[in-house]
Design a protein around this nucleic acid. Structure first.
Lengths: 218, 218
DNA sequence: CCGCAATGTAAGCAGTGCGCACATCGACTC
DNA sequence: GAGTCGATGTGCGCACTGCTTACATTGCGG
C-alpha cells in the first residue's frame, strides 16, 4: 500500500486520525472534537466517521492505545514485583503516567463510557487481573502468618487498585499538590505502605536530609 | 423580593437555575448545557449569564451544593466515628452517595476544574481535613502499639481518602459491578479493612445491629 | 417623578456532532 | 481493456452549544 495519487484518498486516514487525536489529547486542549482531529489529520470533517461510528468510538480507540502504554509503563517500573516495595514502585508509575498524560488518562477512565465497548471492558479486566496477580505474588511470600483466604486477597487487590486509582485522580484534579514529582512519589509510596499495613521503610528516596515541612491540603 | 409583575423579572432566577441544573444533573442526561438549564428554569437562554460568569461557574455552584450534601451524608452515616468499622460505614456512605448522584459527583470531582475557584478549593480542603480527623480519631484509640508518628497519620489519611475516592470512581465508571448495593457495600468495607490492616470481621452486611439505620433514600 | 443599575430578552457568531447525497478511487469481473 | 462496485473521502446542512452584544423592562433611591 503505497501512496495512491496523493490527493483524494489519504490511504491511511484511520491511523492519521488516531495519531492526531492522540496529539491533541497530549496538547491538553480540553475536550477534543472530531473536527479538530480531522483538521489535524489533514482530512475533511466527516472523514473520521468512515472509520469510527462516532466520537466515542474514536476516543475509545485512543484509550485502548493508552491502556497498552500504561501496561508497558507498569511493566517497566518493575518486571516482576514481589514485595510491597516493588508494588509501591508500580503504583508510583501508575500515578506518574496519569500526571504525564492527563487527558489521555481521563479519556481512559473518566468518561461516562457506556459498557458497550468490548475493547475497553477487556482492557480494564486485564488491568484488574494484573493488579490481582501483583498483589497475590507480593503477599504470598510476605504475609505468611495467619494465611489469608481468597476473599482477603481479592479485597486487598481491589483496595490496592482503588487506592492507586484514587491517588491518580486526586492528583489529577488538584486535590493533592502534584507540582513536585518527588513529593507525589513519596505520597504514593507512603499511602501504599500504609495500605499494605507495613511501616514505610524510609519515606523519601534516600535523599531527604532535612527541609521536610510538608505542606499539603491545598 | 416579592413577586414583581410575574412576567418579565423572574425574581429569583439564580436559584431557579441552580435547581434546574441540579435536576438535569440528577436526570443523568450527560453533559448539561446552559441553554437546557435556562429552558428548565423557564428563562431565556442568556439569563443564566447574568448570575454566573460562565458555564463552569454554574456547575461549580451546583458542585458546592453537592459538597454540602455529601458532608451531611457522611455525618449521618456516623456522627463520631471512632473505630475502623465506623470508618468503613462512612466509606460506604461516600461510595453510595457517588452512585446515587453520579453526574453530581462527577461535576464535583471529575471536571478539569481550574484551580481558580475558591469555593471548590475550600470544599475539598474541608473534605481532606475531615478525613484526616476521622482517621486520627479512629486510630488514636485503636493502634497503640508502635505509636505511629504524624507522618504515618498523614499517609494513612491520604490513603483512606484515595482508597474511598478510587472505589467511588471505579464503581461509577463500571470498572466494578455496582448493580447490587450490598455487594458494593461489602466490597468497600472489605477494602477499607484491608487498608487499615485489620482483618475484616465479617463480610456480610447484617453484622452490625445498631440503632443507626442508614436510611438511604432520595 | 426621574434616572439608574439590576435583571431580563432577542439576535447573532463561531464551533460542535452527525446524517445525507455525491465524488473519487482501487480492485475485481467479464 | 471496459465496466462495475464497494471503500474511502468530500461538501452541505441541521440542530445544538457557549457566549457576546445590543436592547427592553423593571424596582428602587434621589
Amino acid at each position: 500500500m503505497g501512496k495512491p495519487s496523493d490527493s483524494y484518498h489519504h490511504g491511511d486516514a484511520r491511523a492519521a486520525c488516531l495519531r492526531a487525536a492522540r496529539e491533541l489529547l497530549e496538547e491538553g486542549g480540553g475536550g477534543l472534537s472530531v473536527r479538530a482531529v480531522a483538521r489535524r489529520a489533514g482530512v475533511s470533517a466527516t472523514a473520521p466517521y468512515r472509520h469510527f461510528p462516532d466520537r466515542e468510538a474514536l476516543v475509545s480507540a485512543v484509550a485502548a492505545q493508552g491502556y497498552r502504554e500504561l501496561a508497558e509503563r507498569l511493566a517497566a517500573a518493575h518486571p516482576a514485583p514481589a514485595t510491597p516495595e516493588d508494588l509501591a514502585d508500580v503504583a508510583v508509575a501508575y500515578v506518574q503516567f496519569a500526571l504525564a498524560h492527563p487527558a489521555l488518562f481521563r479519556a481512559m477512565f473518566s468518561e461516562p463510557c457506556d459498557p458497550g465497548n468490548a475493547e475497553r471492558a477487556a482492557a480494564t479486566a486485564a488491568i484488574s487481573a494484573y493488579v490481582d496477580g501483583l498483589v497475590r505474588r507480593a503477599f504470598r511470600k510476605h504475609g505468611s502468618e495467619a494465611g489469608p483466604g481468597a476473599d482477603d486477597f481479592e479485597a486487598l487487590s481491589t483496595a490496592v487498585w482503588a487506592l492507586v486509582h484514587g491517588l491518580a485522580f486526586l492528583h489529577l484534579d488538584g486535590k493533592f499538590d502534584a507540582s513536585v514529582p518527588e513529593v507525589v512519589a513519596d505520597r504514593v509510596r507512603g499511602a501504599v505502605h500504609a495500605n499494605l499495613g507495613v511501616a514505610a521503610p524510609r519515606p523519601r528516596t534516600e535523599q531527604r536530609a532535612r527541609t521536610e515541612q510538608s505542606s499539603e491540603s491545598e
